[in-house]
Design a binder for these strands. Structure first.
Lengths: 162, 162
DNA sequence: ATTCTGTATGAAACAAAATTGCAAAAAGTG
DNA sequence: CACTTTTTGCAATTTTGTTTCATACAGAAT
């Protein structure tokens, strides 16, 4: 399965907004039967277009969590130390997101912690304990203006069939 | 409803991992009946702990999307221009995330675009067209090491009752 | 102590949704 | 056009979610 048709794109858009939407409703909206929708969702899942299905929580209600954006520059850009850092960041539950980027910084992290004390402890483990890290800078988020991972699918051409 | 008990925390953890887990399975795992789980989920939703339920898509399979981390510094920090920028970024579908942060940059954005050309067009609209923006810097993500919005709930104390 | 009240629970009944089987329609192929 | 493959809708079945109901328990008031 390489291509998506317009039905698939509509389904993905709807599921991104609310994956509890009944298949019947999805079918009504896009003009398919519930069974057809169900088969397509299964295929989209099996083929890896849909990675996971999650509930999004309100971090503001979960104990005054602090969100911090962190830029990290590595000392040397050897592939081993990069890979090592990647798996370290990936395995850390407090690190919500990690991007390996081009430019004068190597990583950008989004970290969520219950307190600044927790964050300081994290910095010790993640950054100070690691000699390969040259410099890191913390930007405390004072407003989560927009969060989520919704992907715009408008750019996808919609062929009649797959 | 102010507090969460250990059942609620377990439920939220499971739903963050997979919100299609049947309520019966959740109940079996944590030691409650399906009905009790269902009532708790409803309450967690009604009280705003659960914000939304979404399918997470694989951006790599959706047409070679480019993810860009952008730092934005404003010319003046008047509240009007900040608020204006916030609503501009928030309303832009290509902007997945937007954090208003402290430090020598004011905003950090996560942008997803189907091509560099699209991104350039976006920069024109978002940054060059706006005189209040002093400087912006783009960091192209070459690896989405970790994505998602999973929140660790381990820090929450678990009282016996609500 | 006892009653009353509010809340949470499990079991069972019920409703709604998802899944499957199958024949028909549509799309693709030579 | 005939043939193959794929996708579809419908209906039956199964699974899941939701509501109901009787009960248990904790705290407050009597």
């Amino acid at each position: 399965m390489t291509e998506l048709d317009s039905f698939d794109i509509s389904i993905l858009n709807l599921l991104q907004a609310d994956n509890f939407t009944p298949q019947r409703d999805i079918g009504d909206k896009i003009g398919l039967s519930a069974a057809a929708v169900q088969r397509r969702i299964k295929r989209l899942t099996d083929t890896g277009f849909i990675v996971s299905n999650t509930s999004v929580l309100n971090s503001q209600k979960l104990g005054n969590l602090i969100t911090i954006c962190v830029t990290v520059a590595m000392e040397n850009e050897k592939i081993e130390s990069i890979d090592e850092a990647k798996s370290l960041f990936k395995s850390c539950p407090e690190v919500q997101q990690c991007y390996y980027v081009t430019g004068d910084t190597d990583f950008i992290l989004i970290v969520v912690e219950p307190s600044m004390h927790h964050y300081e402890q994290l910095c010790r483990r993640l950054f100070f304990a690691n000699p390969n890290i040259k410099r890191f800078r913390s930007f405390i988020a004072t407003d989560l203006v927009k969060i989520g991972s919704k992907i715009t699918l408008d750019h996808l051409k919609a062929p009649k069939r797959k």
